[in-house]
């Protein structure tokens, strides 16, 4: 009895000791900042001699009346809607091609995947050059067809679409990998059975492949949504949110408020919105995802 108790006690101590170093860092840089951000969003930013004081919901009131916040949020929604379905669709197509019998498929895989390995900032620099007015690549091509000059990144109408194109180019190959992994785990018997049944390739894809890939699609979808809120490197390099905030995304706006205007209290309120969106996503994932598939 007492030997049993002491063994359990030792297991407890060992377990916690093993976990402790990671737990300390996680608490310090993930859990504590979440709570601190929440609390700070109810206080004012200290200015000069005036310290931080409790202001209740003032920061949130300011946010609701802030057109740039709404613009960043809407931009973010457009960015997500523009990026995610196309990159997931392309990723699926790429995976099926690379997994199939197409000639030179290892070269295809290389071409599709390479953008994923590059730093976003490098990607942004390269594309910035393409979009440059007058002598960028697109201008050259368009002027050859007699299309008048257009400043792609300098125009409110096209700037977000430009960022979306870059994001799709960068991410599709990354998502392809997840589909490829799932496809390679599928039993070849399924295709044989379908062939015996006389199913067409399209029917097989729609009735068998696609449903079997559903967990992967959900997994990719969740990651794509997280990324659409998290990856703002392009914005920093290519547009700085401009022109006139037409390409500002939520995290970029938080960065601006926090480190250009140094208004940490307002940045905290904005961060709470981002955290709320991520929390909703987590709840959604919990409700919709077949947890047995990914979290054994």
């Amino acid at each position: 009895m007492s030997a049993h108790h002491s063994r359990r006690f030792i297991a407890n101590v060992h377990g916690w000791l093993l976990l402790l170093p990671a737990a300390v860092l996680l608490v310090l840089f993930t859990h504590y900042p979440v709570i601190a951000t929440f609390l700070r969003s109810f206080f004012s930013t200290p200015k000069g001699a005036r310290g931080s004081v409790f202001v209740g919901l003032d920061n949130y009131r300011q946010m609701i009346e802030d057109p740039i916040f709404w613009q960043a949020l809407t931009n973010n929604a457009f960015f997500a809607v523009g990026t995610i379905p196309i990159s997931i669709g392309l990723a699926l197509l790429m995976a099926i091609w690379v997994n199939g019998r197409i000639a030179g498929k290892s070269w295809l895989r290389l071409a599709y995947f390479t953008p994923t390995v590059l730093p976003m900032i490098a990607v942004a620099n390269i594309w910035l050059f393409f979009y440059t007015p007058q002598y960028g690549l697109f201008e050259q091509i368009l002027s050859a067809f007699g299309v008048p000059s257009h400043n792609f990144l300098g125009s409110k109408d096209t700037v977000l679409a430009c960022l979306i194109v870059v994001a799709i180019w960068k991410e599709a190959g990354f998502f392809m990998i997840f589909y490829l992994a799932a496809l390679q785990q599928m039993s070849p018997n399924l295709a044989e059975a379908a062939a015996i049944e006389g199913a067409s390739r399209w029917t097989f894809f729609r009735r068998v492949t696609l449903p079997l890939l559903m967990p992967t699609t959900l997994f990719v979808l969740v990651n794509a949504i997280i990324n659409s809120f998290r990856l703002v490197d392009y914005v920093v390099v290519m547009t700085r949110g401009g022109p006139d905030n037409a390409s500002s995304l939520l995290l970029y706006y938080i960065y601006e408020v926090g480190f250009k205007f140094w208004d940490s209290a307002y940045a905290a309120a904005l961060t709470m919105v981002l955290l709320l969106l991520l929390a909703l996503l987590a709840v959604g994932q919990f409700l919709f995802m077949d947890r047995k598939v990914h979290y054994r």
Partner: peptide, 14 residues
């Protein structure tokens, strides 16, 4: 879900 860069303002303070 909550990657470190989302919390950059608070982590900067830390």
């Amino acid at each position: 879900m909550i990657k470190p860069e989302v919390l950059l303002v608070e982590n900067y303070r830390t």
